[in-house]
Simulated scan of single mutants.
Amino acid sequence: MLVTDACRPDNPIVWVNDAFLDLTGYAREELIGRNCRFLQGAGTDPDEVRRIHGAIAAVEPISTELMNYRKDGTPFWNAMTITPVRDAEGRPAYFFAAQADMTEKHRLELAMKGTNDALEREVGERTAAFQAALEQKTALLHEVDHRVKNNLQVISSLMLLKARRTPEGEAREALQGMAERIGALSTAHRMLYSAGDVTRFDLGEFTTDFLSDINAGLDPERTRVEADVDSIAVSAAMAAPLALMIHELTTNAVRHAFPGERVGRVSITARRNGTGMHLSIADDGVGIAAGPANPAGFGRNLVEMVVRQLRGTIAWHEGTPGTRVEIHIPFSATH
């Protein structure tokens, strides 16, 4: 993973994680302040490069695969998802890129091109119906989502392992929170992988799956999360932002709305309307003002950034009792 600064000339790298250093072979000080193009080389597809530049110029998310080169000159296939992050005024502030090494996948594809019979047997063993129903492009898109889901699950598991070995406090809570957010993104990619139409994401199905996971960890006598969500199909590009937003609002309500032994309920509602989609997440807890202060938290800021990315609007309401968050996402942003 890496972050670039959209406000500085040439969009330089300002942060990378250790996995990116392992993938490319560079040291952190060799990367900070440079544009990502230094990873390109003779085998890099110029058409894909132009497509990436166009998405960045338009401040739009993009997913692609590109041949890049490590520090020692070794080529590797880089599957990346680049997402813009906007500031409070809606201007592009950063670009976040999640990346994965797809070299082995491409090696297997090349090996299978000359062995059609072996390919048919392999695909037939995994799922004959899948081969009969989908074209090659759809199969590849499924495979990308499957691999991204697996990678996110590994990252989430590693963060949870680190959290368990970290003393109680803000650092441990931050690690657990990030692991859960990554888990929500993994669920979205798992649903894209298993769906018949890889270009669409069903919000109702995701919410049902999400509720099953979150309620499994709650005491049903004390806290319950319920949902009444239409089967709303949105574009695959919106799957991750919507999954992250629903996860953040729901888990924050579960954690902070019912301190002590307070009993309560969280409800998620989503409906189509004349101009798009209306999402409401409400609880009957203590309310925002009465909730415990969390100076290190950034959940509300994260939700508001995601809503801006989707060109939507958000309103926070104090209830009697509890808190209600009303979000409107226009169809133009999701279709």
Rank of each mutant, 00 (worst) to 15 (best):
Q99K: 04
K113F: 10
P92E: 09
R107V: 06
Q40C: 11
P75A: 02
D47L: 07
R34V: 08
A128P: 09
A128L: 09
M112E: 12
E122L: 08
F96I: 15
A118Q: 05
V16W: 09
A93E: 10
A128V: 07
Y69M: 06
H106W: 11
D45G: 13
A129L: 11
K113H: 13
I13D: 00
G73S: 03
Q99V: 08
A57T: 06
I82K: 04
L39I: 02
D45H: 11
F95D: 05
E29A: 15
E122I: 02
V14C: 14
E109V: 04
M67S: 07
M67L: 13
V49R: 05
F95V: 10
M67H: 07
A129C: 02
E30K: 08
A42Q: 14
N116P: 07
E89K: 11
D22A: 14
A97K: 04
A57L: 06
N17M: 03
T44V: 07
R8F: 01
K105W: 08
V123Q: 04
V123R: 07
A100R: 09
G90V: 12
I82A: 14
I82L: 15
M102L: 13
E29Y: 09
F20D: 00
P92W: 10
V59W: 02
A100T: 07
A58P: 05
I52N: 10
V123I: 12
D87G: 15
P9W: 03
R37E: 05
L39Q: 03
C7P: 00
A42Y: 08
T127Y: 11
E104R: 14
K113D: 13
E60S: 15
G54S: 05
L119D: 10
E30W: 04
A129I: 02
N78M: 01
G54R: 06
V59E: 09
I62G: 08
D47T: 09
Q99D: 03
R8Y: 00
A27M: 06
E29V: 06
I32E: 02
I32N: 05
L108Y: 03
N11D: 15
P12F: 06
P46W: 07
E104W: 07
R91N: 15
A111Q: 14
P84M: 08
V49C: 11
A118C: 03
D87M: 09
F96Q: 13
R91L: 15
N116H: 08
A19D: 13
N78I: 00
R34I: 06
A88H: 13
N68K: 10
A79F: 08
M67I: 14
G73M: 01
P9F: 07
A79Q: 09
L21R: 03
V49G: 06
L31Q: 05
R51G: 02
E89M: 09
R28F: 01
A19E: 12
A19R: 10
D72I: 00
M67V: 15
N68S: 12
L31I: 12
E30N: 06
P46Y: 09
G41D: 10
T74W: 00
A128E: 05
Q40P: 06
G73N: 03
R91K: 15
A58W: 01
K105C: 08
L108T: 03
R34F: 13
W77A: 00
R91Y: 11
P46G: 12
G25K: 12
N35I: 08
L66N: 10
K71P: 04
